Simulated assay, not measured.
Amino acid sequence: MKTLNSRTIIATAFVTCMGLASTAQSAVLTFEGIPGGTGINFSSSAEAGFDLVVNGLFLDASGNGAGGSANELEGLAGNPSTGNLDVKRTGGGTFKFTSIDVELEYPSPATVTLRGYLGGILQATDILVASGGYTTSPAVNLAGVIIDEIVVTGQRDFNGGTAFDNLRLENVIPLPGTLALLAPSLLGLACVRRRPQQ
């Protein structure tokens, strides 16, 4: 019976680890698990491995969310304002913004602005115009950009206002997990000794 040599085993382990480390993951923030109700302005929460911090928005739990979901985020009713949703991975790490569902709530078109940051430095900005019922708006300038924070700003004033739901974040790169997966292969490469053939 032929046995695999140590180099083959290490090379196989390394390739497997690299494949696992680059596996794309995705998350959709629907705001469904956030406690509260219509008009409740929550300050922070967590969902799908992300931390959410909110300033000047409220959770509308009246069942008007995109795709049949109950919850959506929108500006404070009747107040000219621009509220923010700040999103980071729980424990840190990088990700990419893919799309968001936006809806116009007043007759005049209004905007949802998304700013992506990496290490506190602005990488790109998308300004999405809401002009009707819920539509899925894909990333434009932020498409494929690696970030570690995204700030979503919803416009709300007496002429126009927006709501948003289903913030889709993809290609989450698990940095600590990547190192953990690669460590056995790297350790094996460093420690392996060529054994004499028998």
Rank of each mutant, 00 (worst) to 15 (best):
M1G: 13
T3L: 13
S6E: 11
R7G: 06
T8R: 08
T8D: 08
I9G: 00
I9M: 07
I10T: 14
A11F: 10
T12L: 13
A13D: 03
V15S: 11
V15R: 01
C17T: 15
M18I: 15
Q25L: 13
V28Y: 01
L29A: 03
T30L: 09
T30K: 11
E32S: 12
G33A: 12
G33W: 06
I34P: 02
I34G: 04
G36C: 08
G36N: 08
G37R: 09
G37L: 05
I40P: 00
F42H: 03
S45P: 02
A46Y: 11
A46G: 11
F50S: 04
L52R: 04
V53M: 03
L59V: 12
G63V: 10
G63I: 11
A66G: 10
G67E: 12
G68W: 11
E72S: 15
L73P: 01
L73R: 07
L76E: 14
G78W: 07
N79P: 00
T82M: 11
N84W: 02
N84R: 12
V87F: 03
F95L: 05
F97N: 02
T98L: 14
S99W: 01
L104K: 15
E105F: 09
P107S: 14
V112D: 01
G116F: 03
Y117N: 09
L122E: 11
Q123W: 01
D126Y: 02
L128G: 02
V129M: 09
A130D: 05
G133K: 06
Y134T: 10
S137Q: 14
S137F: 09
A139N: 03
N141V: 02
N141L: 06
L142Q: 03
L142E: 05
A143T: 09
I147A: 08
D148G: 06
D148T: 02
I150R: 04
V152C: 06
Q155Y: 09
Q155G: 07
F158W: 10
G160K: 05
T162D: 06
A163D: 06
L169S: 05
E170P: 01
E170V: 15
N171Y: 08
L175S: 12
P176I: 05
P176N: 06
L179E: 06
A180P: 01
A180H: 03
L181G: 08
L182E: 00
P184F: 05
P184N: 03
P184C: 05
L186N: 01
L187H: 00
G188A: 15
L189Y: 10
R195Y: 01
P196F: 10
P196I: 11
Q198D: 08
